[in-house]
Write a protein that binds this DNA or RNA. Structure first.
Length: 552
RNA sequence: GCCCCUGUAGCUCAGUGGAUAGAGCGCUGGCCUCCGGAGCCAGGUGCAAGGGUUCAAGUCCCUUCAGGGGCGCCA
């Protein structure tokens, strides 16, 4: 990696200058290399002289001078210059730049793959919506975020497992089953009231109808308990299949669907609780069992087992994380939760500590809520009250690729407004298509090249020398850094911005540089460049979980 | 009351403590004899307010204001 190389050169130069006495001794600060915003400042910049100024009591520009006198530049750097108030700027050589085109072609779709995570396994758990109703837009955000992050992490070299945690047991499921049973009875014209906190959405009526049509009235004559159990099971399966279908439409697939119920069938739950008890973090108060998180610096304790003997969601989650860390031994676990789970983070971290694990191994991404509008009208997304706009409706309206791009374009920290009207109106006129169009345009160039039977395999890349060509290459070679940044910071939102920037420089290049022309040698060289661009565009689109169309 | 997130252009949002703060949409004007005009080029306004740290702050710290979320023997 060039940044690292430059940093090494700087370190060496400083050491040399200090040895010879031309630079005052002092401890070296951490050397950071950045990309200057202004292209005229070169490809890389270091602020080392500014940082050394204090300890060495020397003006930054003088330090820069001394460093430059001693530095031996890596081969890819053409020259380094000093800039006020104390930067050293580095510019890549054209020869090295053009060579990168060959490197990209050679790497092909593995270009951008890193070894950052080699040997480490990460589990990423997301969506994990209660299977009691259809997914809505907010869930789509988590789904897109998680699947993109998973793509980026595995491209960065990690072994990644994507998991959906299925809350298939507990209060909400009982309520769901009860509600569905009532709707089923009502379908057969029985007079019976819905439970007060029940699931009132219209989909429940449809679901009951579906079951009635499929199974007939056989549950009418069963004992209620038995009938509810059976109907719950059938309903859950149907809802889960719907969820899977929705996610599939969004190009989100999971490796594992982990059942909460299974925690109780095996010994997971008991083992986890035993560990907490051994650590003396468990106490019985007011007929309930508590996790004394206040011992670990939390505001308050939390109930594990209710006074009626049933475990809370929190207790399940403890067992679940025990399973993730201590049974399945993931090095790192990423949980993506909605903003309404924000308060759950510190106590979950406390649990990890109580289980004797390093809390740093658990990374929680809180993604802020999505508010849905249609024009000025605010739409509710409450599942129990009904009246929701489902994720599927949104995908149908704006398309999966546009959905993904839109969700990805905002950092998880910021709330988003999703205006259906706007999304639909702009669906033909937004960055999604701009990026995909660049890819399709390249495909079109190759259709022409093929038609003219141009063999560009021996194209001479050193012919690439104009500004638009070199600018394009400069953008192409950023891909590995982008992947690294996304993987380290868990911030997939950099991808769409990069994709857009890359598409922009490509379109600009295309306008200025005719690819297939009378000049055979130049045509071949440019076809190589264009192929490299296509590789990188396709890779970014793949990372974002979007299609890379040949035609549009 | 306490905790978390956010406040950047008319709107939706990027911005790794660095040099002249960016993009998309919208608006206005130009560009196709030639590889796809879903394109290219140009046009302008802005870091909520006030302190502080730093050679350097949109970015870090404190206060205030504003919006959202959380503080259950719900999940």
């Amino acid at each position: 990696m060039s940044k690292q190389k430059i940093a090494d050169c700087l370190r060496e130069a400083v050491a040399k200058a200090q040895q010879e006495g031309s630079l005052a001794p002092g401890t070296l600060p951490e050397i950071t290399i950045e990309h200057p915003q202004n292209p005229s400042h070169g490809d890389f910049a270091s602020n080392l002289p500014l940082k050394l100024a204090r300890t060495t009591r020397t003006p930054p520009l003088v330090i820069a001078e001394k460093i430059l006198q001693k530095i031996s530049l890596p081969s890819e750097i053409d020259h380094a210059t000093i800039a006020s108030p104390g930067f050293i700027n580095f510019t890549l050589g054209n020869e090295w730049l053009t060579k990168q085109v060959e490197a990209i072609l050679a790497a092909s779709d593995s270009y951008g793959n890193l070894t950052l995570g080699t040997g480490k396994n990460i589990q990423i758990e997301f969506v994990s919506v209660n299977p009691t109703g259809p997914l809505h837009v907010g869930h789509g955000r988590g789904a897109v975020l998680g699947s993109t992050l998973a793509n980026a992490l595995s491209t960065a070299g990690y072994l990644v497992e994507k998991e959906y945690y299925l809350n298939d047991i507990g209060n909400q499921i009982e309520l769901f089953g009860h509600s569905l049973y009532v709707r089923y009875l009502q379908y057969f014209a029985k007079k019976i009231d819905m439970p007060p906190d029940g699931y009132y959405g219209n989909y429940m009526i449809d679901l009951a109808k579906e079951i009635a049509e499929e199974y007939g009235d056989k549950f009418l004559n069963m004992p209620q308990k038995e009938a509810i159990e059976a109907i719950t099971e059938i309903g859950l399966t149907k809802i889960i299949n719907n969820i899977k279908g929705d996610l599939h439409l969004l190009n989100v697939e999971f490796d594992e669907w982990f059942s909460e119920k299974s925690l109780y069938k095996g010994e997971q739950y008991n083992k986890a609780m035993a560990l907490l008890e051994n650590g003396n973090y468990v106490a019985k108060k007011e007929n309930a069992v508590w996790f004394e998180s206040s011992l670990l610096g939390e505001d308050k304790d939390n109930v594990l087992v209710r006074s009626d003997g049933s475990p809370t969601y929190f207790a399940s989650d403890i067992a679940y994380h025990y399973n993730k860390f201590m049974e399945r031994n993931f090095d790192t676990v990423i949980d993506i939760w909605g903003a309404d789970h924000q308060g759950h983070v510190p106590r979950m971290k406390a649990v990890i500590k109580a289980l004797g694990q390093d809390p740093e191994r658990l990374k929680v991404i809180i993604c802020q809520l999505v508010t849905l509008h249609r024009g000025k009208e605010m739409l509710k997304v409450s599942k129990r009250s009904g009246d929701i706009i489902t994720l599927r409706e949104v995908i149908d309206e704006v398309g999966a690729d546009a959905c993904r791009f839109f969700f990805l374009s905002r950092s998880a920290d910021s709330q988003m407004d999703f205006d259906l009207e706007l999304a639909k109106k702009q669906s033909a006129d937004n960055p999604v298509y701009y990026v995909q169009y660049a890819h399709a345009r390249i495909a079109s160039i190759f259709r022409l090249a093929q038609q003219r039977q141009i063999d560009y395999r021996h194209g001479d890349i050193s012919l690439l020398s104009t500004e638009p060509e070199l600018t394009l290459i400069r953008h192409l070679i950023m891909l590995p850094e982008i992947v690294e940044r996304v993987a380290i910071n868990l911030e997939p939102h950099h991808l769409p911005y990069y994709a857009q920037a890359l598409a922009t420089v490509f379109h600009s290049f295309y306008k200025q540089c005719r690819v297939v022309s009378q000049d055979e040698a130049l045509t071949q060289a440019r076809l190589k460049l264009v192929r490299a661009t296509q590789i990188v565009l396709a890779k970014v689109l793949y990372l974002m979980g979007m299609t890379a169309p040949e035609k549009m």
